[in-house]
Nucleic acid binder design. Sequence first.
DNA 1: CTCCATAGCTAATGGCATTAGTTTTTAAGA
DNA 2: TCTTAAAAACTAATGCCATTAGCTATGGAG
Lengths: 206, 206
Amino acid sequence: MGRPVRARLSTAAIADAAVELIDSGQPFGLNAVARRLGVKPPSLYNHVDGVDEIIELVRGRLAAQYLAEAGTDAEWGEVLESMIRAERRMYTEHPHVVPLIATSTVRDEGVIRSYDLKATHLVRAGFPESEVLVLVQLLDAFALGSGLDYAAPDAVWEPSGPTKTLGRLLGAGPPGRVRNEQAFEVGLGILMDGLRERLARHVADA
Amino acid sequence: MGRPVRARLSTAAIADAAVELIDSGQPFGLNAVARRLGVKPPSLYNHVDGVDEIIELVRGRLAAQYLAEAGTDAEWGEVLESMIRAERRMYTEHPHVVPLIATSTVRDEGVIRSYDLKATHLVRAGFPESEVLVLVQLLDAFALGSGLDYAAPDAVWEPSGPTKTLGRLLGAGPPGRVRNEQAFEVGLGILMDGLRERLARHVADA
DNA sequence: CTCCATAGCTAATGGCATTAGTTTTTAAGA
DNA sequence: TCTTAAAAACTAATGCCATTAGCTATGGAG
């Protein structure tokens, strides 16, 4: 067959196809991405180093879409909260992505920049520098854990035997995703309040 | 070869081998577990339905070890905190397990019981029943996200270009796992304080 | 003593990621 | 303009994985 007149592939096209595939719920893999692009698997290696890089492309594509610079001039708490909400939106609109990106090291520049932005705002707000990365990491863990829970099958807990409380509450309440939404809101509220109070204490100590 | 005089395998032995394998950092898989047991892969199917069930066995084995009933008589906050710390210990002592169990549905009775216990304590404490599962889910997401972050490679963020703040702070502070430990402590503190305050408000409203 | 379930095994299937080497096309340089 | 090298698709092959089917010897139940 030889080289085609016009290139059929590009990292952008691969990233798009990968996101589509993941969102469809079908099992993710390099071969499946190739199939979706109407191309044989080895062709992808002309554009990408392997399956891990495809995942990194996906992260970058979504980061560009969701994590692109929020307003920088607002109060630090509002900036942080809006950034975390953006991350949250990314996870809920692409739930199947979460387990894939949850375990690999971040190299994408857009994501790095968003961490950098969070750190910069926290420093400017007056948090001690030794604590700033800890807080960024904390918020990230919460958002990721929450996203992971959202991605899990609806019945996260499936009690087979009798339970003291769990079974009753599971039957009474809304489905898992609604609960997850509430948990995210409650948690974010508590964490942001906690951070503000923590900052006030730091300022008072100084 | 035929049936051996004394059975070489059991679900317990499989679970143990799987945990050992996972802890060793080598890639997890049914074949690798079989290798470690000195047995051919298909033999495992006499005891287990497939690789997913092995993961469930691992969850159960660790849950039995770490999540076995804490003291039930203490104040609700202390009980909850100690349960979450137990979960945390499970994750830090077996970090490679986290990505594996993070995405699959929980069927293990021990884990279910521990959720049930948390829910029971929260109900008894006076939280509105409609909120209890939300809070359990919230704490779980935090612990899991934290554990996942702990499991990630030491340099979670690898800025290749220049950054405003991130690079400097990364160089100055302790390595990722220490930061993760601090983030867990700060987060747990904020969340528990937040829950207590929330309870006080609920009680005042009633 | 017979028979069946158990628990190893071997062999085979089909999927996956990846590498090597082939062909054709395009772009660049003499 | 002709040559040459890189690019981008391909085919073929490797080696891993999980899983299924079917074989065989053992031990216990009737």
